[in-house]
Design a binder for these strands. Structure first.
Lengths: 235, 235
DNA sequence: GTCTATATCTGGATAGAC
DNA sequence: GTCTATCCAGATATAGAC
């Protein structure tokens, strides 16, 4: 998957994405004209992400959000009924989108090694495009209310499990060594998360998504591939 | 380094540690009787860490802190002059302690491979004992004021650089392959951080510090060691 | 649908008694 | 050194005009 085709896959939806967002949360939103609601949801979400990622969601006041989004405080409350609900909506949306895109990115691939590479690359590219969402989701999870937090953790574990499953397939077909699947999957997740959590560091060093993806694949494969497979791999 | 000797190395200081803490920040603290100040600083810090790590520092109110620490609000302000200063004090303390312990843990070791293993193990054990401090430090960095944040980032990079240096030494002496040092060091850091950021996950899976350390070493070495060194390594 | 104005409450911080 | 009482800025949330 080249970055461009991937970017197309996701960006064509930016307009669409907020329409989906609106539809999924229609029941809590007072505004009924779709095109109005979608446009404002966009402004609200983007302002929330920017402000929260700078100083944290709970330190962002409604006044801040009002002036950054261009809507009055009163208007904001037509889109959610409390600040906590806003947190919830954004969190849910980002998790849903991530799982949906990832699942579809590996659908129909059989070869475990290709599948693993694809999953890594897709996750990195997605987090690149959706950077503010991923960062927000990670940092604010612990500030969610109990139920929502449990849900977020569930989804995170399910995503990690996608990697564990791929590794299991590779082990069954004999191309991956017999290492601990859950630790290896956790390691991959940690490396993927580091990309969006420490983006300033990587971009200061002029590391691109592609080169980072290549690096992660190299590390993971040097650990996972059986010796014979490794030798078959090399230049 | 066994866990016990390491634990001893650090825990003998819990009392001591807060005395150091007090001395380093004496200039901003109004209370002059050392034994009083040290005891209260302990209560204040521990309550702050617990509350902040649950719901975030900015969501913790002084009233929360007052009842959790057992000191009145008025008394709290004898130990710091603003909530931000409290954040600062704890952040600084945890960074200082971490660098100090890490530096000393690898001092005097020459062999790069042993040095690398030792640095990894020391970091993991330290973050295990000081878990709340590490978690706090990571999560609240972005909420610091500009100067303090820059300082925190500096220290983080310097710690990462310790790993890069070790790798460089290993490359010079020919036992490590010629891979990108900064990416590899960043990877190690990410894996070390994952240990304290996702501790609930690892402990639910009954992964111990030792087994996690062994895993990280295995992954890193399988990537870093030259083929001949690897074969020399194996069973 | 959106705004302005405002009610109500919570937060950080201080003053002064003990 | 510590506590209680209190100040007041700034927070969330609502009401009602447009």
């Amino acid at each position: 998957m080249t970055p461009d085709t991937f970017k197309d896959l996701v960006t064509l939806s930016r307009e669409e994405m907020y329409r989906e967002f609106y539809r999924r949360h229609r029941h809590r939103i007072k505004i009924k004209k779709e095109h109005v609601a979608v446009g404002n949801l966009m402004r609200i979400s983007e302002a929330t992400l920017t402000l929260s990622n700078q100083k944290g969601f709970s330190a962002m006041s409604m006044r801040d959000l009002s002036s950054a989004s261009g809507l009055s405080i009163g208007a904001l409350y037509s889109y959610f009924s409390s600040k906590d609900e806003l947190l919830d909506m954004i969190q849910q949306e980002s998790l849903q989108l991530a799982t949906r895109v990832l699942d579809s990115s590996i659908a129909g691939i059989d070869d475990p090694q290709r599948k693993l590479r694809r999953a890594i690359s897709a996750h990195l590219h997605l987090s690149e495009i959706m950077h503010p969402w991923f960062f927000f989701s990670y940092m604010e999870t612990k500030n969610l209310k109990k139920d929502a937090r449990r849900n977020a953790i569930d989804i995170e574990l399910r995503m990690e499990n996608v990697f564990a499953e791929i590794i299991a397939e590779g082990q069954r077909s004999g191309i991956f060594r017999d290492v601990c699947r859950s630790l290896t999957a956790a390691m991959i997740k940690a490396l993927l998360q580091d990309w969006y959590l420490k983006r300033w560091k990587h971009s200061r060093r002029e590391v691109t998504v592609e080169s980072y993806a290549a690096f992660v694949v190299e590390v993971v494969e040097s650990y996972l591939l059986t010796r014979s497979a490794t030798e078959g791999q090399e230049t």
